[in-house]
Simulated scan of single mutants.
Amino acid sequence: MATPIGNLADITLRALHVLQLADAIACEDTRHTQALLRAYGIDKTSVQLLAVHQHNEAEAALAVVQRLQQGQRIAYVSDAGTPGVSDPGARLVAAVQAAGLRALPLPGASSITTALSVAGAVAHSTESGGFLFAGFLPVKHAERAAAVQQLASEPRCVVLLEAPHRIGELAQALSILGDRTVTLARELTKQFEEIATQPARDLPAWLEGSPQRSRGEFVVLLHPTAPTTDDGDSLRVLRLLLQELPLKTAVRLAAEVTGASRNSLYDTALAWKRGAPESGDE
């Protein structure tokens, strides 16, 4: 079930009812969940709280299945938001279903939908409608750069998540996307909630503008790319031309041959160039 991502008032009445009725609560962090329960006046003993997190998810899932088979009512919560999306819970749900038992969803707060609802980043055109949830990008520089290079050609809104100690590195990696609009949403539903929208190239400078801007968990939205009639041929032509010609010349010729946007091709070519792993990069 979903728990608040910041503001405790965002819990649902149904969630409170289920938490009160549950024989046990499987949770990502027992101490965090105990504090949450006390805030709502729900009394559960430490024995009724079962730790199910990313380091023990497989074995803990078996213990939960055994309790369910005994007829117990088990609720599962992550530290914040909806479990099984970017938080632990997927293995637990899979194990429950594999045992022929039911897993019932209790909807509620989600940082992903919260950010999307306020950013105006989901287009409705046929080409770039909907959004892609990419979650956390790789930590290593070369792998992250390669992931950003792939996202450069994704026309839909892309949803990323990042921790405060890595947001600077992500911002630097995304800056190669140039004019592509990006929304940073941090501390969602908390006291110091902040939502800022700007071109990708300005992200590092914006973060450096205040030490407060690097605090809190982040949802990062890459807005849809500008509509284009390109069917993919322009990127293939561009890649071939870049093997023989300087960047600007290759971009100009690719735009003339395919009719694709020169600015879009230039940003893509720049992303390819800057995103190439450096020798010896880890």
Rank of each mutant, 00 (worst) to 15 (best):
F192Q: 06
T229D: 14
E256T: 09
I176H: 04
A15P: 14
V220Y: 04
G89L: 04
A103M: 04
T30Q: 01
V96N: 00
T82I: 03
E278V: 07
P277T: 05
H32D: 07
A205N: 13
Q150G: 10
L242I: 01
S78A: 03
E57Y: 05
Q97D: 02
A121L: 11
L49R: 13
S234N: 06
R215T: 13
K44H: 09
Q20A: 14
H124L: 11
D230Y: 09
E282P: 09
K140N: 12
E59M: 06
T33Q: 09
A146N: 07
H124S: 11
A51V: 06
S264P: 00
A147N: 14
Q66L: 06
A163Y: 05
P211M: 12
Q20Y: 04
P224W: 02
T258W: 09
L242Q: 05
I5F: 08
Q66K: 13
E208P: 00
H55T: 10
D281E: 15
Q54K: 15
L104G: 06
L106T: 02
A171K: 01
L137A: 07
N56V: 08
S153W: 00
I42E: 11
L13F: 14
L132C: 09
R166A: 09
V220T: 13
H223Q: 13
G129R: 15
I42P: 10
A145Y: 01
G130A: 01
S86T: 03
A39R: 14
L19S: 05
Y40N: 13
V220G: 06
G275M: 06
G232M: 13
D43S: 15
F218S: 08
E28C: 06
G108S: 00
L241C: 02
A196E: 02
S234K: 07
G280C: 12
H32P: 02
N263W: 01
K273N: 03
I25M: 07
I11N: 07
A123C: 08
V139I: 12
A58M: 04
V93Q: 02
G130F: 04
N56Q: 04
V219A: 15
P164N: 13
I74S: 00
G232E: 11
S234E: 12
S117I: 12
D231S: 14
L177F: 03
T113I: 15
Q66E: 14
S78N: 04
I5N: 07
L137Q: 09
R91T: 05
E256G: 02
P83E: 05
Q191P: 08
T45C: 12
A171V: 00
Q149D: 15
Y76C: 02
V47Q: 15
K248R: 08
T228A: 15
R274F: 10
P105V: 02
L221R: 11
A15Y: 08
A260W: 02
